[in-house]
Amino acid sequence: MRPFTLQKPTTIGQAVSGKKESAQFLAGGTNLLDLMKKHISQPDRLLDINSVLSEKIESTAGGIRIGANVRNSAAAANELILSKFPLVSHAILKGASPQIRNMASMAGNLLQRTRCPYFYDTSLPCNKRKAGSGCGALKGETRMAAIVGHNPQCVAVHPSDLCIALSALDARVIINGKDNKETSIPFKDFHKLPGTNPEKDNNLPANAIITAIEIPSNPFNKNCSYLKLRDRESYAFALVSVAAALQLNGNRIVEARLASGGVAHKPWRWYEAEKFLKGKTADLSNFKQAAEIIARETHPLNGNEFKVPMLKGAIEVALQNCLTA
């Protein structure tokens, strides 16, 4: 690690005004310290925000508000989340290890960097790590890379499981900007596609800080599931993952939500398939058709074509799991 000064702001205002130059916020540190050890992130100052942000999970008029500093394990075990938004808990428990979930904050989970091997190896080109250096993965090892929404600039995928559930449930990211006023970003607009600046993962304004995550009330707590397929059964990043949620009236689908991880630069919503499922009978033949619609949207790279049939199967199984959840 490069030497840095460590400061402990006591208010959100202090934290935001202290985030100058290469300063970084430190919450759980599970991703940041790793990146610092590998000299991928080299902040000159760390702002320990552990005593600044909320660790509360509160019921609100419109849904639920989860403080930025709530630990992943605390959120996964929270009664309110388990009863009203179980999909969030299922997704969190499929990510990382118990130790890391005990450390990692909710906001930090949103801001974690990709695990693309080319991003992690400083001897190889990566536009995300060093703008303009090229993409090593594009013509290299693509097993973990994207199959949708990528461009020649970057084929990395977003690593979070939690974010897939939050995306499916139309969460909002609550932020405090430089003027210390609270604003919010819809979850679908929080993370971005690579575009011409893949070094940026999201649309969080410079200096702004995430203070909470809000999830609006929804009818998906009865029929939802999170399916994650990976190289080993536990403690690995997704090859593909699916967050599925259905609102049912008898066996008719009133509303459907489908999102995937391991497939794109951001948590990916399958809006076309959701539209298709609306009003249909909840049965395997419709689930298979939804999976076909999704498969048509994908553009696998040379070497990760296997992800498409894998995703199709995952969509079918996740939707079926919704019925037995």
Binding site: G29, Q99, M103
Partner: peptide, 24 residues
């Protein structure tokens, strides 16, 4: 943070000491 050999308890919770700054 990949192997768990450094696991300790902080306030009774199991965490990874290799990804924890002593000052925090």
């Amino acid at each position: 943070g990949q192997c768990g050999a450094c696991t300790v308890h902080v306030n009774g919770q199991r965490v990874l000491s290799c990804l924890t700054l002593a000052a925090t």
